[in-house]
């Protein structure tokens, strides 16, 4: 196999769909479970090892698995090509906005104890604030990794 054919084979392997039905069935069965585990890792980050970064990477892994098996065109329904960068911006904004919210409510920046939610003591408010910013981190990491993968493929 000379260099040009190897390049063509590699490119088809990465961009186009893999035609094996075994791979399709396995990936379609696997992806929802990976996403569930990703959500679990994010929501359970308060009580066990886990959190925003790990959950985001797991979600990104599920999308990248779809991209690799179904190809770029057929996996647009799950995560369109143009969505990741705005989603990452939304994630970073959720993070910064939570800090700003606490500052407007009277505390210092990112001091979640001052979040204006009535009926909760400051420790529980910090618990909630951590959950909020982990949501932002999850969105940002997930969509950034998907975006890097898409861009590396599409170039």
């Amino acid at each position: 196999m000379n260099e040009v054919t190897r390049d063509i084979v590699l490119r088809r392997h990465m961009e186009g769909p893999i035609v094996s039905p075994i791979v399709h069935v396995c990936i379609r069965g696997l992806v929802p479970f990976i996403q569930i585990v990703g959500l679990y890792v994010y929501f359970h980050g308060h009580y066990s090892p886990g959190g925003g970064f790990q959950g985001g990477v797991l979600m990104a892994a599920s999308i990248i698995l779809l991209r690799m098996s179904l190809g770029l065109a057929d996996s647009q329904a799950v995560m369109p090509n143009r969505l990741p960068i705005p989603l990452a911006a939304v994630g970073a904004l959720i993070y910064a906005g939570t800090g700003l919210f606490a500052m407007v409510a009277g505390g210092s920046y990112l001091d979640y104890g001052f979040l204006p939610i009535p009926g909760l003591e400051p420790a529980m408010l910090r618990n909630l604030g951590i959950l909020m910013i982990e949501l932002g981190v999850t969105l940002c990491v997930m969509s950034t990794i998907i975006s890097i993968y898409d861009n590396l493929l599409g170039s």
Binding site: G45, H46, G51, R126, I130, I133
Partner: peptide
């Protein structure tokens, strides 16, 4: 401080939030 058992999460998101 934060009613969260996982210390790594608290440091990551609260003490070192910035």
């Amino acid at each position: 401080d934060a009613k969260t058992p996982n210390m790594v999460t608290v440091i990551l998101a609260d003490y070192r939030g910035f």
